[in-house]
Design a binder for these strands. Structure first.
Lengths: 192, 192
DNA sequence: TGTTGCAATGCAATTTGTTGCATAGTAAGA
DNA sequence: TCTTACTATGCAACAAATTGCATTGCAACA
């Protein structure tokens, strides 16, 4: 399973509680994986059982107690072993794309709202990436360390995907207006 | 569930047997979804039960019998209803990216073989897309129908993603050689 | 004639992932 | 004070997906 390893990496980058991991994985900025808190707690329990991680309870005077997990040497070597295993190609899955294929047999204008939403969400994601990029990887005096370069490289793929999405959304919106003009759009065109 | 609808669309585009669907979904050319045959047979059975699709057994004289499914009017309207439902943003999931994040704490050179494999597979996929593009969407006298334009637009996103992947793989390979030169690469450089 | 491989369909067991709910404390505001 | 919202953890039930196996029939090849 990959969630195990995704969590291990995240914990390697920064020891955290399940709650923190859940928030990071929910936003999924630069993580390339996603999970809900229920799943995360389950996997953390399993990995602690297996000795890949260990926890320390941080008593919060004001906040609730937090169970902070850190990767053990055993976890580290499990990870090291895992990266040498062959990894299958990751298939893009997109519900929106299925809807577009379906809309080819129906009215594509029905998808304009969804398209606008996706465009907005990808825009937000890209902005978040850009902010992170500026904060962590540029404007420093020193050149980036090899570790940072790699982390940056992963982020770059995320950025490239968001840009691809955004360009596609814009193109597609224009296409729909061209092939299936809405009455109001037609009216606007005619009265202008 | 989306697999139901992905199969419905696929059957709308072309009535097929479970086996055919499995092959198409396995190659995942322009499909944006994926499933194994076991899962597909299960979902087909469920959808036939629900009246969304109906089957006709084609006796093969030489080949084995095929159970060919086609979408019913009920299935069609289920699809029409589904496309108006809000669709959550699709999160990119990539095992390879997790491995890169892990490799930042280990030796990134370990990922060079996996990187080359991914590069090759995305290259193959892109070539398949391009071949399909040429066959179905260009070189025709007539301009594309609105339906074709939409199908082409979906394919374009697939193409864009493959191109993004390929460019990233190439960049990353160069990066790894730069930050963690292999002994042989260094030797090559020094002797050249 | 046996073996390998492919087309075609499916069951069963297991693992992953989702949905719904529960609990408990803090903090802020109506 | 009551309600709302957020931090923090988790269980249980269910749905979806994967893995492993099984069967039948044909075709090609040694």
């Amino acid at each position: 399973m990959s969630l195990d390893h995704a969590l291990l990496v995240s914990l390697l980058e920064k020891p955290s509680s399940g709650y923190e991991l859940a928030r990071r994985f929910d936003k999924s900025i630069g993580h390339f994986w996603h999970a809900t808190h229920q799943q995360i707690y389950k996997v953390l329990a399993r990995m602690e059982e297996a000795g890949w991680i260990e926890s320390e309870v941080h008593r919060g005077e004001t906040a609730p107690d937090r169970k902070v997990f850190a990767v053990t040497p055993a976890g580290r070597s499990a990870l090291a072993e895992w990266i040498t295993e062959p990894s299958p190609i990751d298939r893009a899955r997109s519900e929106l794309m299925i809807k577009f294929r379906a809309a080819a047999f129906d009215d594509p204008r029905k998808l304009l709202p969804a398209l606008a939403e996706h465009r907005a969400e990808h825009g937000t994601l890209l902005a978040a990436y850009r902010a992170n990029e500026a904060k962590e990887f540029s404007g420093h005096d020193r050149p980036l360390s090899p570790q940072q370069e790699l982390q940056y490289q992963v982020m770059k793929l995320g950025i490239a995907f968001e840009e691809t999405w955004i360009a596609w959304c814009d193109e597609t919106q224009a296409l729909i207006h061209r092939i299936a003009p809405t009455p109001s759009a037609t009216a606007t065109k005619e009265t202008s």
